[in-house]
């Protein structure tokens, strides 16, 4: 969600139970402007909130001109002071999957994971390996994970220029109402994974400048998105059921769209049973 006009944009996700208190809104409006200026960002997004047991993390992301690359993630506990999160490396993300339970709210807290090592004979040798995972690292990994799994944008909101840069499409005028009711009009904001696997015939109709990302239609399992119209058809809301708490909104016919995550930072692995 763009930090400019945050106090207006946050109202679009209010019906999903995402509300900022007036104090938080006021604080964010001040501190995000400073963050944008000091970090020399092209834009700053209010990413959302990760609920901890004792305290919550507010997350913001600053981006350069190319919005897919050069992304930096910041966290704050009071909406005023922002700390830079370390970029999530592959090893970090593998490790943080082992951490169980809710976030505590203390970035220096360490989760412990004990693993019984099996010897080569296959019998338990009794050797235990303990891995400690810092909450700050886990936070960074979970944010990266959410971005990869569910961060979405409307189709043609971003274009790929011939030199490979990904820019916001200035002439994006929004999806029409009938378009916005289809999952194929929304795309994962990440490097395409399923696109390469498509056949030439399927690729023939794609516009290279626009269709350079995966659409939601191919998501597994089917039904992992809940698409609803609110205010009649005046506002379309997509809620991810894989990461409960991720909400995307778009006002059809306008260039207004955005998304936000407010949840406890745990993937809903029970999804196949719940549909």
């Amino acid at each position: 969600m763009d930090s400019e006009g945050l106090h207006l944009n946050i109202d679009y996700v209010g019906s999903s139970g995402i509300i900022l208190s007036p104090e938080q809104k006021a604080a964010l409006q001040t501190s995000l402007v400073i963050l944008k200026n000091s970090g020399k960002f092209h834009r700053v997004y209010f990413w959302g909130k990760i609920l901890g047991v004792k305290d919550d993390y507010f997350i913001a992301q600053g981006v350069g001109r190319d919005e897919m690359e050069n992304r930096k993630t910041f966290y704050s506990k009071d909406c005023v002071h922002w700390g830079l999160l370390p970029p999530a490396t592959k090893a970090m993300r593998e490790q943080s999957k082992l951490a169980q339970g809710r976030f505590t709210g203390d970035p220096s807290y360490e989760f412990e994971h004990t693993e019984q090592k099996k010897s080569e004979d296959g019998e338990e040798a009794g050797e235990e390996e303990t891995i400690t995972i810092k909450e700050e690292d886990r936070l960074s990994s979970v944010i990266a994970e959410i971005d990869e799994d569910v961060k979405i944008v409307p189709r043609s909101a971003f274009i790929k220029t011939p030199d490979g840069k990904i820019n916001a499409n200035r002439s994006f005028e929004g999806l029409s109402v009938s378009e916005s009711a289809k999952l194929c009009s929304y795309m994962h904001f990440r490097d395409a994974i399923c696109l390469q696997e498509k056949s030439l015939l399927q690729k023939a109709n794609l516009d290279k400048a626009i269709d350079f990302m995966d659409t939601l239609e191919e998501d597994i399992p089917k039904g992992s998105w809940s698409l609803q119209f609110e205010r009649g058809s005046g506002l379309v809301t997509l809620r991810s059921l894989l990461w409960l708490g991720y909400v995307f909104y778009h006002v059809p016919g306008t260039h207004m769209y955005g998304s936000c995550y407010v949840g406890n930072g745990e993937k809903n692995l029970d999804l196949p049973f719940m549909l």
Partner: peptide
């Protein structure tokens, strides 16, 4: 009161 705590729904709603 709920809004003070950052809970609830939109005011219009």
């Amino acid at each position: 009161f709920f809004e003070q705590a950052g809970i609830g729904l939109n005011r219009e709603e």
